[in-house]
Amino acid sequence: MIPDRFEYYAPTTLAEAINLLQQHPDETKVMAGGQSLIPLMKFRLATPGYVVDLRNVPHLDVLQERDGSLIIGAMVREARLESSALIRQRYPALLDTSSVVADPIVRNFATVGGNLAHADPANDHPAMMVALRATLLAQGADGQRTIPIDDFLVDTLETSLKPDEVLVEIRVPQPAPRSGAAYCKLERKVGDYAIAAVAASVTLDENGACTQAGLALTNVGPKAIRASAAESFLTGKPLNDETIREAAKLAAEAAEPGSDLRGPADYKRAMVRTLAARALRRAAQRATGSIAHNGNIGGGVA
């Protein structure tokens, strides 16, 4: 399968990239790793007249903690997260997530930024970033702005990025003491999208009560869904079997699954409930240090 014709640019500065976007804002696609865009172009589901490849733009591959956040540059590849000691030790939930995106070969080129900017509700990073309350830095002709993840994700394949804006970096708040997060995904096989997946993030106080909860769902709605009722329910409560069970039930109620080849809606909703309980349990274990931080990579089963 061959993509339709397009003009290709590989600018060497961000300013040049933005300038190119301004010339044909509605006909231009930004390309990071290309692992979602190229398949879409081969199927001719996307037929951009112009492609702006970010591969030569410097400084987009930053991966470090700075000013209270983990900074993930827009061109950081999934494989880089998997091999990063910083991610393994401090952000194991991101390792859970990266290690279940597509397959290991795709992850050598696929980027976290692309996974978010593509805004496919089946992609794994959006829900994790919702749970972690990430913000995104975008740059356009009018300068830079930060966008909270909830505002960034608008609808299926739709973000609030303007046509002349480039996603520059993702900022994940550094974990407060007694924080933990996890991502649990149910997939039919490696490389498939989630039947359902749940991202959880919790911060506990000295007495074990939850001071902040983040819970978000993958591929059971038009975009990553924040399970707000479950988050509110958990706030101020200890995380135990009973509260986790109730939060998982509320998370399942927040899901808007459709029936498709991955299963009927009722089944997916039931899986959200199970996965939410597992993700919360694992997040709580990580928060209390009762499992090794890098335990059970792969977002598997608790």
Binding site: Y8, A10, M31, G34, I38, P39, A79, N108, F109
Partner: peptide
């Protein structure tokens, strides 16, 4: 992008060559 039959090494790293542009 599913089967990996077209896998080659790009600068030492496995890549699905059906899912990369030559210009890229």
């Amino acid at each position: 992008t599913s089967c990996g039959a077209c896998t080659v090494l790009v600068n030492g790293v496995p890549a699905k060559s059906c899912t990369l542009l030559a210009v890229q």
